[in-house]
Structure formats: C-alpha cells, structure tokens
Amino acid sequence: MSQRKSYAVGTGLFIVLGFAALGYLATQTSSVANRHHGATYTVDAKFENIGQLKERAPVKIAGVRVGEVASIALAKGAPVADVKLAIDKRYADIPVDSVATVFTSGLLGDQYVGIEYGHARQYIADGGKLGLTRSSQPLEEMLGKFFGAGGGADAIGGSYDVTARFSNVGTLSAGSPVKMAGVAIGRVLSVQAEPGKLDALVTLAIDNRYNQIPDDSSAAVFTSGLIGSQYVAIQPGGSPDMLKNGDEMILTQSAMQLEDLIGKFLVNGSGSGDKKDSGSSATPAGKH
C-alpha cells in the first residue's frame, strides 16, 4: 500500500505543479498580468503623445531604472495622455521641476520614460505631478536622425528656434538635421506651408551651444549624396550680430530637384539654382 500511496502523492504533486505552471502562464505572462506591488509612490505626468509607451515600461533616471509605468489613460477633457509612474520609494528625492520624456531605446526599440532632474529644492511627493514633459518623438524624426547623414544634434543644452522660408523644401521634413560645416548643430522642428506667400516656413531648432551664428548667414536645403535624404546647411555670414530665438534667416536656397542637378552636371549651366527665389542672390552655386 505504501507503494500505491507514493504514486498517488507523486501524481498529485505533478498535477499541482502542472496547474501552477498554467496559472503562472495565464496570470504573469499574459495580458492579465497583475500590477507591480512594490514599495512605490505614484507620480502623474501628462504627455501630448506617448507613442508606443506601454504599462510596466521602465522609468529611468540617468539610465537607472527607478520604477515603471503604472497606468496609461486619456486625461479627462483634453487630448493628452495621463501617465501614472510608480517610482521606487528609494528614489524619493526627485525635484518637482524635473522633466519627464518618452524615449525610445534604439530605433525600433521599446519606449520608456526618462526623467531629467530639475534644480528645485522641493521634492516630488506621492500623488504629485511632473509638470514638464516631452512627448514621444515620431518615428519620422528618428528616421531623419538615422538616415540624415550623420544624425541631428543631441540638443542636450536646449535649443533656440529660427525660421527660414524656402520656395521648395524637397523632401525636407521635421527631424531632418541642420548642419554647419558638416557638423550637426540642430534639427528641423517643423515644415509648414504658407499658403499666402507660396513658400514653406521651416522652423529650425539649433542647439544652444551654437549661439554664435551671424544673423546674415544663409540656409540651404541640400541632399546628402545624389539621392540621399535632405538637410539644411547653414553658411555663416559676416554680420557682428548673432541669430537669436525667433529670428528669421533671410538668405535661403531651396532644394534642387534631381533633374536640376543632372542638368547642372551635364550642361555645366548656371543660373538654374535661383529659380524664383525671394532673395537668394547669395551663394547660388558656390557650394558645389
């Protein structure tokens, strides 16, 4: 009989183990996975766009994982995402003016929330709010960075905006890099059509480090290689005054179509660079 009993006990253990495994699969690895129950405190953050951010995605400070996304919901009354971050109690000294950003690990990688410390002496409390947030960057921007001949500037020290008008921007889009002497100094923030003036208003975000650009510098839309993606190249001028936030760059050179380029190459012709540009007398073909 002891023989029989040991079979029964062993078989019972086997069945319990099997069902335990099933329970584990069903609850811990599937969409009914339960929430993280650690010693955490909750911080609210509102984002205009969270991209692919998911619940249980990590929250990082300086690359260190400090917590995870507890919940994601659409905020009431506004088209913004209300994201609750569950942050480990050990990291309770986050300044209230810190900035929360939705980052992407790698090009197609998963997204996470990164927090950059502010300078306030007050620390954020349970149920508190992170007022300063930066939304997820759209994929196009990322692609622009990747294929934009070297990538854009990292904009760590903040940036200032200047505008420029082009009669033709080609395939220039938000996120394309802005370069000076081949070095990325910023990126294209937006490209908007201006219906009344028949040209495109391009806003450039230039890194604060590069704030010594003369205000008579010219901007040109160039293509990296023959059929590569396009970027804005800045050719410094000689003015003693520097570009400031909100300034407009007067001297611009529009994108050249491939046909124009070929025409230039074959005919060695001139004058095709300034088609009907508003004020593009400066450096028409001198770049090439």
């Binding site: 069903a26 811990q28 690895t29 599937s30 969409s31 009914v32 996975a33 998911k54 619940e55 249980r56 995605a57 990590p58 994982r65 995870e68 996304v69 690990s105 998963d110 996470y112």
Partner: peptide, 16 residues
C-alpha cells in the same frame, strides 16, 4: 534586456 520591458512587452502581446 530591461526586466520591465521584457515582461511589459510580453504581457501586452500575449492573450490568454
């Protein structure tokens, strides 16, 4: 790979 990313991706995709 980040622990939370590993699980969050999984729990987000796997349907019971």
């Amino acid at each position: 790979i980040d622990n939370g990313t590993f699980w969050s991706n999984m729990t987000d995709t796997v349907e019971v």
